[in-house]
C-alpha cells in the first residue's frame, strides 16, 4: 500500500514536472518581452527633443535671422507645450502598462497609480487639446485594468486575462504615440532643416560673405547643423520603429494568449524580442 502511494506521488511529480517546466519557460518569455519593452519605451526619455524645444529653437532661429536682440526672448510656445503634455500622458500610460506586465509575469504586485493619468485627461490642464474618443476609451480601459491589477490578488494565472483586456487599448495608444513621435515631432525637424537651408541660401544670395575662408566656414557650419538635425530625425524614426515592434509583439501575445503554457510561444516571440533589442541598440548608438 505504502509502495503504491509512493508510486502515485512519484507519478504525479513526473507528470507535473513538464507542466511546471513549460510554464516557467513561457512566463519567462512574457517577462523578457515586457522587460525589453519597458527599456524600449523608456528610451523616450533619452530623446533630447520635444515640441517645446522645437518652438524655442524656432524663436532663436528667427531672432538670428532678423538680428533681434531683446532682454527677454518673446516666444509663445503654448500649443507646443500642449502637444508635449498629451505626449507625456500617453507615454506614462504605455510605460505603466508594460511595467505592470513585467511585474505580473515575475509574480510581483503592481503599484502603478492611475490618478495622474486620469486627472490629466479629465481636467482642463491640456487647454484646448481634444483627444479623440478612441484614445480616451483606450486610456479608460487601460487605467481600469491597471487599477485592478494593483488592488486585486492578480497573479500569474491572470496574466492571460491582463493581456487580453489590454491589447486593444495598448494598440491604440502605441499607434498614437508612434504617430506623435515618428511623424509629428520628426516632421517638425524637417521644418527646422528648411529654416536652416533658407538662412544659408539667403546668405549666399546676398553675397554677405566675401573671403574664401568665410564661405568655407559657412558651408561647413551648414552641413554640421544639417547632420545634427538628420541624426535626431533618425533617432526619432528608430524609436518609432521600436515601439511599433513592441505593439506587433503584443498582438502576437494576445493572439496566443490561450497558449501561454505552450512552448511554441517563445519561438513566436523570439524574432520580435530580437528586433526590439536591435532597435534599442541602434537608438543608443544614435543617442551617444
Amino acid at each position: 500500500m505504502i509502495r503504491r502511494r509512493l508510486n502515485t506521488a512519484q507519478l504525479l511529480l513526473l507528470l507535473g514536472s513538464p507542466i511546471w517546466f513549460f510554464s516557467c519557460i513561457n512566463l519567462q518569455t512574457v517577462a523578457d518581452y515586457s522587460e525589453t519593452s519597458v527599456i524600449g519605451i523608456q528610451n523616450f526619455e533619452q530623446i533630447d527633443y520635444s515640441f517645446l524645444q522645437h518652438c524655442l529653437d524656432r524663436c532663436t532661429d528667427e531672432a538670428i535671422r532678423k538680428y533681434e536682440i531683446k532682454r527677454i526672448q518673446d516666444c509663445d510656445c503654448s500649443i507646443f507645450i500642449e502637444a508635449d503634455s498629451v505626449t507625456q500622458v500617453i507615454y506614462r500610460s504605455i510605460e505603466g502598462y508594460f511595467e505592470g506586465l513585467s511585474k505580473l509575469s515575475y509574480n510581483e504586485l503592481t503599484n502603478y497609480s492611475t490618478n495622474g493619468v486620469m486627472e490629466a485627461l479629465s481636467s482642463d490642464e491640456l487647454g484646448p487639446v481634444k483627444i479623440d474618443e478612441r484614445t480616451v476609451n483606450a486610456f479608460s480601459s487601460l487605467s481600469n485594468l491597471l487599477l485592478r491589477a494593483s488592488t486585486d490578488t492578480y497573479r500569474r494565472k491572470k496574466l492571460e486575462l491582463y493581456i487580453e483586456q489590454a491589447n486593444e487599448p495598448i494598440q491604440v495608444l502605441i499607434e498614437k504615440f508612434g504617430v506623435i513621435v515618428g511623424t509629428s515631432l520628426k516632421g517638425e525637424l524637417r521644418f527646422k532643416r528648411e529654416r536652416l537651408y533658407g538662412y544659408y541660401i539667403e546668405m549666399k544670395m546676398n553675397r554677405t560673405l566675401l573671403s574664401d575662408y568665410e564661405k568655407g566656414k559657412a558651408t561647413s557650419d551648414y552641413y554640421q547643423a544639417l547632420e545634427a538635425i538628420q541624426r535626431k530625425e533618425k533617432e526619432l524614426e528608430v524609436f518609432s520603429k521600436s515601439i511599433n515592434q513592441i505593439a506587433q509583439a503584443h498582438q502576437v501575445l494576445y493572439e496566443n494568449r490561450n497558449k501561454l503554457s505552450v512552448k511554441d510561444i517563445s519561438g513566436l516571440m523570439i524574432d520580435y524580442s530580437s528586433n526590439i533589442q536591435d532597435l534599442i541598440s541602434e537608438f543608443n548608438k544614435l543617442n551617444d
Binding site: 515640441f51 528667427e62 535671422r65 502637444a83 483627444i131 509629428s184 516632421g187 517638425e188 521644418f191 529654416r195
Partner: peptide, 16 residues
C-alpha cells in the same frame, strides 16, 4: 518663414 511656422504649428496642434 510665416508659412513654415504655420506648418509647424499644425503639426503641434495635430489632432486638435
Amino acid at each position: 518663414y510665416s508659412l513654415l511656422s504655420f506648418g509647424e504649428n499644425i503639426l503641434a496642434l495635430s489632432t486638435t
